[in-house]
Write a protein that binds this DNA or RNA. Structure first.
Lengths: 225, 225
DNA sequence: ATCGCACTCCCCCAAAAGGTGGAGATCAAG
DNA sequence: CTTGATCTCCACCTTTTGGGGGAGTGCGAT
């Protein structure tokens, strides 16, 4: 199956350049090009590309806004790689929030661009190394505070951690009991112990801490409520 | 200037493999190998490598702990790339927190490994695409399911959303009342209304939904408990 | 063998949370 | 001006939660 690509950039020359690089691959086809954000949205709906290479600075509607709008309606089928000339700083966070799967500089070597497209098509994400570092730094920094909790969590027993996991699912004591095949009284014991060890007041705080510490992660939960 | 590399893995065969791949490059030199975490720490101090390729599962001291210890004393001069066989899931956060600059799977193509080493040496960071995606997801607080909840959330009134925010801080009804300058009874009303509108059972579930929907995001909270 | 620990479960009690069914006030829109 | 929505609060009631005691089992370390 060939990958359908949409190339979006306000400079025709740049579009052609990327299109040529990608067109050399047998399993990649550039199905459309767009020169503005609005055109991009239009083209995305019309051609349903697998991957969109999106410039940021464009007339009418910038690439990040276009990214957000496109992903609103076709998040499942289309992934977007943001291309920028340099200075990712101000844009990366907006880009990632908008739902971009990649963020690379335009001076990327052609073969790397191809690799990035394939990676993203495979469900991965590809960021420029400096962006990656920034993201890690931000991530690690944010965890500065939560690290206290992460270390406190280590003091929990295995069973207690299991119970905390269940708490982070929004389960009641009885539901946890059923899930772990133990009595409700036992769950109460564990919960009490957890709250005490982590210096928390109630299960709601336990849920917060589970997320902040990384024990629970967004999107990994089977939230059936 | 040639890059000095330390290869750490408990399997000698794996070490030799990586060493050979890297040794082919004229500007890369494998200055030492280690088979355990403790050996790694020792070798890192002795050889002051620019880059360490570090396995996770090892006897004596695992790679993540070794990473943390090494970076404690030579964070400026040495960068570490974590290598794992698969299932990055459980390790990535610990790895990034420990200060790793890279996290790649062992089945990485040789030329990509070389590229990763150069990237990290240049001050960038290199993560496996699935890891990158996870990190983005975590940062952006958005993931597939989030949309369902997000839509339910906008049925809430402004005040209710405020209260939900407070719930996601782990606050009790009284604390929310104090924070919003209203009575505890009023908070109860709002909470009831929230639970009813979102079809939740208790505040713990509300916290979960706040995170899963992106209304609350890891690291944005002033967790003072 | 004894100690500590984790895990299991029990009882009792108080506090918090949640449900129901109100009420008054405001304010924007029809 | 009436309607509907929102925000504020109340009273009454039931359920859940959380704390404070135990207590018995098994298991691994000393």
């Amino acid at each position: 199956m060939t990958l359908k690509i949409l190339v979006v950039d306000d400079q025709a020359l740049v579009r052609r350049g990327f299109a040529m690089v990608l067109g050399n691959e047998t399993d990649i086809e550039v199905v459309a090009e767009a020169g503005t954000g609005l055109e991009a949205i239009q083209a995305a709906h019309q051609h349903q590309p697998d991957i969109i290479l999106m410039d940021i600075r464009m007339p009418e509607l910038d690439g990040l806004e276009a990214t957000a709008r496109i992903l609103e309606t076709q998040r499942e089928s289309t992934r977007i790689i943001i291309l920028t000339t340099f200075d990712p700083d101000e844009y990366i966070y907006r880009a990632l929030r908008a739902g971009a799967s990649g963020f690379v500089l335009k001076d990327i070597p052609p073969e790397s661009l191809v690799a990035a497209v394939r990676t993203v098509a495979d469900g991965g994400a590809m960021l420029d190394p400096t962006v990656t570092r920034r993201l890690i730094g931000r991530f690690a920094g944010k965890l500065g505070a939560a690290q206290n909790y992460a270390s406190r969590i280590d003091r929990l027993t295995d069973r207690e951690r299991e119970v905390l996991q269940s708490l982070a699912d929004g389960k009641s004591n009885q539901e946890i009991a059923d899930a772990l095949f133990i009595g409700a009284a036992t769950v109460k014991s564990h919960v009490s112990s957890i709250l005490s060890k982590l210096e928390l007041r109630d299960r709601a705080q336990a849920v917060v801490l589970a997320y902040e510490s990384g024990l629970a992660r967004v999107g990994e939960r089977d939230v059936e409520f």
